[in-house]
Nucleic acid binder design. Sequence first.
DNA 1: CTGTTAGCGCATTCAA
DNA 2: TTGAATGCGCTAACAG
Lengths: 355, 355
Amino acid sequence: MTIKEIAQLAGVSSAAVSRYLNGGYISEEKKDQIRKVIEETGYQPSAQARILRTKKACLVGVVVPKINSETISRVTAGIEQVLSSRGYQMLLASTDNDPVKEITYLKLFESYPVDGIVLIGTVITGDHRKFLKNAKVPVVVVGQYTKYANCIYHDDHGAGKAMGKLVAARLKSPSAGSADTAPSGSKYGKAAYIGVTKEDKAVGIAREDGFRSGLKAEGIELEPEYIRTADFTMDAGYRAAMDLLESRDDIRIISCATDTIAAGAIEALLAHRRKEIPRSAVGSATRMQYILDHSEIQVTGFGDNQFLKAVTGGISTVHFGYKTSGIRGAELLLDVIERGEKIPIEMKLGFRLVE
Amino acid sequence: MTIKEIAQLAGVSSAAVSRYLNGGYISEEKKDQIRKVIEETGYQPSAQARILRTKKACLVGVVVPKINSETISRVTAGIEQVLSSRGYQMLLASTDNDPVKEITYLKLFESYPVDGIVLIGTVITGDHRKFLKNAKVPVVVVGQYTKYANCIYHDDHGAGKAMGKLVAARLKSPSAGSADTAPSGSKYGKAAYIGVTKEDKAVGIAREDGFRSGLKAEGIELEPEYIRTADFTMDAGYRAAMDLLESRDDIRIISCATDTIAAGAIEALLAHRRKEIPRSAVGSATRMQYILDHSEIQVTGFGDNQFLKAVTGGISTVHFGYKTSGIRGAELLLDVIERGEKIPIEMKLGFRLVE
DNA sequence: CTGTTAGCGCATTCAA
DNA sequence: TTGAATGCGCTAACAG
């Protein structure tokens, strides 16, 4: 069905139909004829052709590293809220943490085309910078700092530092339930850290550096043997934590770069303790309770994951304004799209420590 | 940058550039000239115009009810796997469980256009049926049965029934840790169920009916006072479970229609027990352990959520082949797109009980 | 208010 | 092999 056919059936010109569709001048009489034909045929205009003509899609593309993430979904919720209130729709492309796919999808959106792109950033490669420099549509980067596009990022360093100080304070205070079981071999017991790739400036570098400096401010070193790297999955967190637990026996706190990794660390903690307690020692039904009771190792994260909080009662973590960054990001983007705002903007958002 | 400008700069016709881009006949000499110009200018063809011309986007749209869900991400992972291996890209649209938005995005994809659509279904309204009947592009529905499109769904009734039987067996056996604390007022203690809207045929009706018939097969009734309805969120699960716990004191098992709801129920269980135990009764650090130790109420779910399993040690749940349904769905869709397969297909996938 | 016309950027005839 | 010409479906001038 094309506009031409509708015009013929209604006995008018295609321009008249176009006007009917877009609210231009048209007589009531012809309006009725056209409406009738459209209803009968179920005609729907091709967004495609319209966009080719008008260069306006009322559509924004969002490139995300993965789908199944509270963090991401908070950001997209913020974006969606702003977009829909201003008459835009949102399309998502998930890259599964593959920088190559990320470029591919950025280009897809660019040529598809959408009116603007939000990139929820992780690793910014040279290809990314090249793309950002030459992009034909406005792009806003959320979650990473870059000078090649408008960006909104979080105070990851500050958050890391705050967490480092918190951990230091915990290490210095006697353990809550049983001071007598404090690990030997060290004055306080050790802090361990599970980070992510350094290619991720925000999560990989800023959080870890901040964490280290937070500890240091309280006179505690983060020792290299107590550091592991994981990717952004629970499984990786599990493996890294298990590795830590099996190679060191004086760990008091395992701090993780994300709550998802922390969830894996918690799993590892449970599994590790289970190993250490012979099956016969306690009844199977109460083993978990026994394990928890005797575990003096704490886990901390970043991100304030609500799911984790619900089922575990909550770990120490950091709340970032992810929804806010989505909102601000979308607003920035629309400013460029609709008002041609040319002044580059960098925006840094704060955090809140959650104990 | 258009193909025409490139042609001028390279001193050839636009058709030659088009052939260069699409692998048609062209001399090495001209190939070089064109390549040079394209590299210099950073030209990128407009996918848009190409699609208008060729009616082929190599693109599939996926409409999902929400982003932040293990279930959904497993399905989309399956879809993506098939699509990318066959040279397609995937775009996502999230509807936030709003049936109206769902239609909007379906239409967007239809007219944008994509080559095919996968709808991860929840509620199928009259508007949905109308759309499916008249859709200009092939659509596959995943997760719900429908006769208006190719569909892949799961044996929710069977899964519910299996879970019902499992729960019945649990109710009949003495409670693991402390038979002496078995709730009074009933022979076995009661089963409660937190379901979702009946508008969702698969999750809302099939699972609950199956669950009920599973209990009944073992001679146990699911009583109306022990049933609540929640939406697909943890919060709703929390509220529903809290409501159950506060109104009934003989519940032994709370079965939930999804693992996400179950997570909320677990949270409620923790909070409820916490309330019942005066703060002074036990030290704060060991309260959680105390609570868990004395809770004889079990929670079950559906979906086999790995995050939940990791941080809680796992509840009884049902594993559905979500990734498989994504894979099959994408294959079905591509069969229609590429081979014009016309025979309608309905596909039902099984499940595995996870204790 | 209305219809005719001329493209948007590209791929594909067709004739050379 | 190549280029000129045509049209995908639509909107925006323009002249009526």
